[in-house]
Design a binder for these strands. Structure first.
Length: 329
DNA sequence: AGTTCCCTGAGG
DNA sequence: CCTCAGGGAACT
């Protein structure tokens, strides 16, 4: 579930490995279960496989950026070596971009292997569920322009104005990439908890103070998650195969029936926008009741102190990343 | 604005 | 066997 913090972590780990390097080859292994390689690739590549490979070969990486949940690998300008400006990667649910020292694929779910102009440098795109996408695009093109503002860049006032005009449930809006880009199910739930706002609250009914609290909740949650390298649930790792640690600090996400870390009330689950939604019915009271706050909120003081649960060990691959095999930068 | 589907693996 | 997990496109 790569969301903003996971994609940001992938981008940061990718930058020193890719910038300045040339793509010298693109291989698409013919392995994998069930469907044919052609069928698998059609879901992942927007361009026919042959053209995809041909147009990328020779391109040099000039920059690697994050745009919402997308990884933008920017390439040398058109005319110089290739007509392609940008390789846009969306990791979907289970997509990984991982550096390997061999082009050989270990996983039947590795769909694309990029060869780079340095010895022992291959970038593998692996995606078990194939919700991800690789496409050749113009970063100023229309697909990215549909996305809303980045929650770490928008101003407090602009955020409030956007919320004010919408009658949807606030959680649905946070998940809507046209409203803000980069938030997914984990960080929507965690941000709402941090802001003490009920996920089913109607956006336009949030007053300035609550909107402001949500703004801070989102930013603090995302910033903290980025510092910890994201959340490694499902099988997320960065480009060097390292897992994140933020899953140990989830307050409500997938903690249905456990005690709220703030007040001890049992965490509840409901479905909003066809997604599991986890919240504390006491700390995040009534969808339409304004201004209820069980605890004082400081602007820069987190409402909930970071906490690591005792007795819950880190995921195995968090301690021992499974995809780092003899990597040497 | 809400629902369904895609896809695979985990867990009951 | 079954249900659940979910980003986002394509529906209603």
């Amino acid at each position: 579930m790569p969301e903003l913090p996971e994609v940001e972590t992938v981008v940061r780990s990718l930058r020193p490995l890719l910038i300045g390097r040339r793509i010298t080859g693109v291989e698409m292994p013919q392995n994998g279960p069930n469907s044919s390689a052609r069928a698998r690739l059609r879901r992942i590549l927007a361009t026919p496989a042959k053209d995809f490979s041909r147009r990328l070969c020779g391109a040099r990486v000039t920059d690697v950026r994050r745009y919402g949940k997308n990884v933008l690998i920017e390439l040398s300008p058109p005319g110089e070596e290739t007509d392609v400006r940008c390789l846009l990667v969306h990791l979907g649910m289970t997509g990984r971009l991982v550096w390997h020292d061999t082009p050989e694929t270990r996983s039947p779910h590795t769909h694309v292997v990029f060869a780079l102009d340095a010895p022992g440098c291959w970038l593998h795109y692996t995606d078990i569920r194939r919700f991800g996408k690789l496409r050749l695009a113009d970063p100023r093109g229309k697909e990215l322009s549909k996305l809303g503002p980045d929650p770490l860049e928008i101003s407090r006032e602009a955020f409030y104005e956007r919320l004010r005009s919408r009658r949807a449930m606030v959680k649905s809006l946070l998940l809507d990439q046209r409203f803000v880009r980069g938030i997914g199910n984990i960080y929507a739930d965690e941000s709402l908890f941090r802001a003490c706002i009920h996920p089913a609250a109607i956006a336009s009914r949030l007053n300035r103070e609550r909107a402001s609290r949500l703004y801070d909740g989102i930013r603090e949650t995302l910033t903290h998650a980025i510092e910890l390298g994201g959340s490694s649930i499902s099988d997320y790792v960065d480009a060097q195969g390292r897992a994140g640690w933020f899953q140990l600090e989830h307050q409500v996400y997938r903690r249905t029936g456990e005690a709220c870390p703030q007040c001890g009330t049992l965490i509840r689950r409901m479905v909003i926008a066809s997604r599991s939604t986890h919240f504390c019915p006491r700390c995040q009271r009534g969808p339409t009741r304004p201004g209820l706050r069980p605890v004082a909120i400081g602007r820069s003081t987190p409402h909930v102190a970071p906490r690591t649960r005792k007795g819950i060990p880190a995921r195995r691959d968090a301690e021992k990343p499974p995809t780092t095999r003899g990597f040497s930068p």
